[in-house]
């Protein structure tokens, strides 16, 4: 089991505790409120992921080995989702990120219960995380 898979199965277990949907949302809101702050200078137009209803900023930096993600949103539930994604994918190599599955979001019921891309930007965030991984991998391959 890869490190990313270990984290995502831990996330699935955490959400399994809740029977009630409101409790799941409550947890997601707590995660949103505790999302580590993004450096204000990264909340730029170019880091903005256009969702229909809430705005999401995603910043990525690469130290040559690991990619480090930070994010923010003006909606708390979206921040909660960003928190989960960062926990799963931040501090990993581009290859690890590219090899990983995003199935865990289905397993905790997030993709069924939260409307797709246009409203919460979740799918756009995942796409963007994978794009960064691909871009950094390509950049390194060309540099070496």
């Amino acid at each position: 089991m890869s490190k990313i898979e270990e984290t995502t199965s831990a996330i699935i277990n955490e959400f399994d505790i809740f029977d009630d949907w409101m409790d799941k949302y409550n947890y997601l809101i707590e995660l949103g409120k505790s999302l580590p702050l993004i450096d204000e200078k990264y909340k730029t137009e170019s880091n903005l992921i256009q969702g229909c209803q809430s705005r999401v900023w995603l910043h990525a930096s690469y130290d040559g080995t690991l990619i480090h993600f930070t994010a923010d949103s003006d909606a708390v539930i979206t921040k909660g989702i960003a928190n989960l994604l960062i926990r799963a994918f931040s501090e990993h190599t581009p290859q690890e990120i590219l090899d990983s599955s995003t199935e865990f979001l289905n397993e905790i019921g997030l993709t069924q219960h939260l409307s797709p891309t246009r409203s919460n930007g979740m799918l756009s965030m995942i796409k963007q995380i994978k794009m960064y991984a691909l871009a950094f991998k390509t950049k390194q391959a060309m540099g070496s």
């Binding site: 949907w21 949302y25 209803q53 809430s54 909606a75 539930i77 919460n120």
Partner: peptide, 21 residues
């Protein structure tokens, strides 16, 4: 100052269809 998207997501759980955005 609750974001309409946050509010709408919870209101929906009550079976109430409002528009947000």
């Amino acid at each position: 100052n609750i974001h309409p998207y946050d509010a709408g997501t919870i209101i929906d759980q009550f079976g109430v269809a409002v528009r947000t955005g």
